[in-house]
Simulated assay, not measured.
Amino acid sequence: MNRTPWRRRREPLDHVESAALLPAPGDPVLSRDRLTTLEEHLMNEIRQAQDRKSTGAQPQTVALFPPSSPEPPRRTGSRRLALIGAAAAVAVLAGTIGVAQLTGQKAVEAAGPPEGSVPASVVQVAQGTTEGLSSTVDRISVAAVKEKLPEPRPGQFIYIKSQVSWLTMSENVDTGKSETYVQKLHGRQVWLSPDGRRGWLIEPGNGTTSRDGLTLDDEGEALEPSIGSPSYDYLKTLTTDPDELLKKIYEETEGQGNGPDQQAFTTIGDLVMEQVMPAELTSALYRAAAKIPGVVVVDDTTDAVGRHGIAIARTDETGGARTEWIFDPKTFSYLGERTVQMRDMEGVEAGTVTGHTAITERAVVDAMKELPGAKGKV
């Protein structure tokens, strides 16, 4: 079963039966679409775990993520098998299958350090301020308008290349001691059609795909696009008035995430991270974000590849994680996103960087799996 990063679909009948393998869910911290993406990936890992059990393979822990995000991404239909924000872990313990979902804090049980992971870094966190927020967002919004890409035509594809890393945790079920890890930084490439019906994802570094990748094509009847599961064609129909746009986001995300303000911020972050949209809309989204209570400016932070920047950020009051949208301090162009824990929370130390992304290329290409400036395909 495949999903586009941005579109909800009806689930197949066997999904209901497979869901019995999962424990009863708690109150989700992630958006509905991110949880759906993670659940789908978890079910895939459970099936693989059963295969390993039948062949006598050794237990292992597998890390997943949403994105922003997007969605996980995201951050909603967000993004994508992506991005975004929290991760999940699947553990195979002593011949039994244990599923542990992270909501940005702690896994219930795990089987040692996840393969391909490294200890999470703990950084000195700069405090944010509302001073200068308006002028900073003005500069970012003006820069967004100047960064216009060609509008994708039918048959073309939006291409996003990034470097990403997400949180996973390991807990010794005998001692209760947990350790925090992040995935090794790895590449991610996504192709999306303007109508959202077709797509391709390559991300072998996360265990999400093979080196060839996997299809994100729509299978069956597509649902109506929305703020949470948009396409380029849908996004270009939206208003560019920041107040009206923010009102629409609040209305469409009502009841999701950790409160309306946090979910609105997450939704906007998911949109701007792994998507191409009309430049005027991107500008309006930044101006809308500045109107959300709790949004601050952070003077210095770094993206996943070490580029320093200024950030627009907000801390989730429930989980204590601060999401930072990072911009070049001179050009104010978008660089990436960082999530850092602002207070100790169920085994995650304050200052722990739990998510890191860096967008390294955005383009419009003529064919699926085509690279910008290249005649061939990956």
Rank of each mutant, 00 (worst) to 15 (best):
R3T: 11
T4G: 08
P12D: 01
L13W: 12
D14E: 15
H15W: 02
V16F: 15
A19W: 12
A20Y: 14
A20F: 15
P23D: 06
A24E: 10
P25G: 09
D27Q: 13
V29G: 00
L30G: 14
R32D: 13
L35M: 14
L35I: 13
T37K: 11
M43N: 11
E45H: 06
E45A: 13
E45D: 09
R47I: 09
S54Q: 14
G56Q: 08
A57G: 10
F65K: 10
P66L: 14
S68E: 13
S69R: 08
R74G: 13
G77W: 06
S78H: 05
R79S: 13
R80M: 09
I84R: 13
A86E: 13
A86P: 11
A88D: 13
A91K: 11
T96A: 06
I97W: 03
G98H: 12
A100G: 12
Q105S: 14
Q105Y: 10
A110I: 04
G112Y: 07
E115W: 07
E115T: 13
V118M: 10
P119A: 04
V123D: 07
Q127A: 15
T130G: 08
L133S: 03
S135K: 12
R139M: 04
I140S: 02
A143E: 05
A144P: 04
K146P: 00
E147K: 02
L149Y: 03
P150K: 07
E151A: 15
I160E: 01
Q163A: 13
W166E: 07
L167M: 13
S170K: 06
S170A: 15
K177E: 11
E179F: 08
Y181P: 00
H186A: 12
V190H: 00
P194G: 02
D195H: 01
G196C: 02
R198F: 03
E203N: 06
P204Y: 07
G205E: 05
N206V: 04
G207L: 07
G207R: 07
R211H: 11
G213E: 10
T215R: 08
D218H: 05
D218E: 11
E219D: 10
E221S: 06
E224D: 09
E224W: 03
P225C: 04
S226T: 11
S229K: 06
S231M: 03
S231E: 03
T239D: 01
D241G: 05
L245K: 01
L246N: 07
K248Q: 12
Y250D: 08
E252M: 05
N258D: 15
D261W: 12
D261L: 10
I268P: 00
G269K: 02
M277Y: 04
A279M: 01
E280W: 02
S283R: 12
S283Y: 10
R287A: 04
R287T: 03
A289E: 07
G294V: 02
V297S: 06
D299Y: 02
T301Q: 08
V305N: 09
T315M: 14
T315S: 14
T323R: 15
F327Q: 09
K330G: 01
Y334C: 01
G336I: 01
Q341N: 06
Q341R: 12
E349L: 05
A350K: 15
V353Q: 00
V353G: 00
H356N: 09
H356Q: 14
T357D: 01
A358G: 02
A358P: 00
E361T: 15
G373H: 02
K375C: 04
